[in-house]
Design a protein around this nucleic acid. Sequence first.
DNA 1: GTTAGGATTTAGCTATGCCTAAATTAGTTA
DNA 2: TAACTAATTTAGGCATAGCTAAATCCTAAC
Lengths: 223, 223
Amino acid sequence: MISESVDDYLKAILELGGAHDERVTTNALAERLGVRTPSVTGMLQKLAAQKPLLVLYEKHRGVQLTAAGKRRAWELVRHHRLLELFLHDVLKYSWDEVHDEAERLEHFISERFEDRVSAILGDPEFDPHGHAIPRKDQSGVFRDEATLAEWPLHKPAIISSVSDRNAASLRELERLGLMPGAALIVEQRKSSGALAVRLDGGPEVIRVNKDLAFRVLVGNRQR
Amino acid sequence: MISESVDDYLKAILELGGAHDERVTTNALAERLGVRTPSVTGMLQKLAAQKPLLVLYEKHRGVQLTAAGKRRAWELVRHHRLLELFLHDVLKYSWDEVHDEAERLEHFISERFEDRVSAILGDPEFDPHGHAIPRKDQSGVFRDEATLAEWPLHKPAIISSVSDRNAASLRELERLGLMPGAALIVEQRKSSGALAVRLDGGPEVIRVNKDLAFRVLVGNRQR
DNA sequence: GTTAGGATTTAGCTATGCCTAAATTAGTTA
DNA sequence: TAACTAATTTAGGCATAGCTAAATCCTAAC
């Protein structure tokens, strides 16, 4: 009943819905999923019609996840992050290689696989990118962070996580030392949107372009 | 271009074709794959028409794999057996739990995943059921064995592998001690097809039903 | 050599999930 | 309030991979 494609819709609705599960538009979904809007409408209509009700959909008013839909979506996020950590720590994948493989496999691993992987990793809390790994039976959301792009100047920040969507960006972030746990201060915001950032209170100031800055989530608590 | 479904057809053709890649019939494929014969005909026609030619198909005369088709099929077998060993040895799955998970995942793991798993397992030669794990760039076939059901009476045999298709049978085989490496002699062949088998030259004679005996492959060389 | 019967293929249908083009709706903007 | 525009939905197609029912082929037995 739940295809790979449905999985992708559920994950996208979860991620686009933000901390408060706001309604997600057809357009936003189409863009995120790389399909055309009529395909989204069609899929939402089908999802909203079928038995284990996963989404609430009203035409022209967007879509939200039901409790069941949210459960499946968080399950996928858990699978993804556990797989990333497993690929990195056990199979020795590099930081930027884990995303694609995890994205493919997250749909197909069983409960047992998930449990055993979690066990051999010591029931970890964070994936290699710093994202919290949600636990079963709670939503485990971490959304009280900001992107580096919008962090105030001169306020100390700790990188809590980075987006895992793009291998080239990840390599660049790693090269710059912008990895989870790193402490930094934003010294200056250029007109282009690029940032001048001082790492670990040291003397060096590095330039972080706008696109990259949006991939870095910061807080001010060490983990 | 290669769907999960195509994968299943290729594997089935490989397995049903035997040691000499004999032509496989539409009927045999339909039965093995659990689909109706017209579905098989349709798929074979499509496969035989498309660009990376995977099968040779003549209507009413069955189907065979091309070199490319064989390469993909053996790759799947390698994936399957590596995954089984990995699930058993690393994730601590029991003997009878590995098949289904491996069957699902074998389609989706990457070259890199395959290589890394093989590496952490020490580039193993056999899976937990005793089947040889084929290596890249060679066909690595092991087909000089016989089923226990057809082994001569009183001739010493070593179990080389067991079929991994059925969890209940696997548990029964394990309970009886019929696992890869076990030495035995067939004492008697009942009219029902059941066997009376003496394990390790000991005094105990166990009864092995016909169905089970067909799942056990034996040779007379210790591995 | 004919023919019966099983094996196989053809014909035509279903569902999924995507597409383009055209219609419609909703929400601003004059 | 009327109209414009952008977002969204409807309508109609395509490919995949399955299905049933009906036609056809091949072979083996007479």
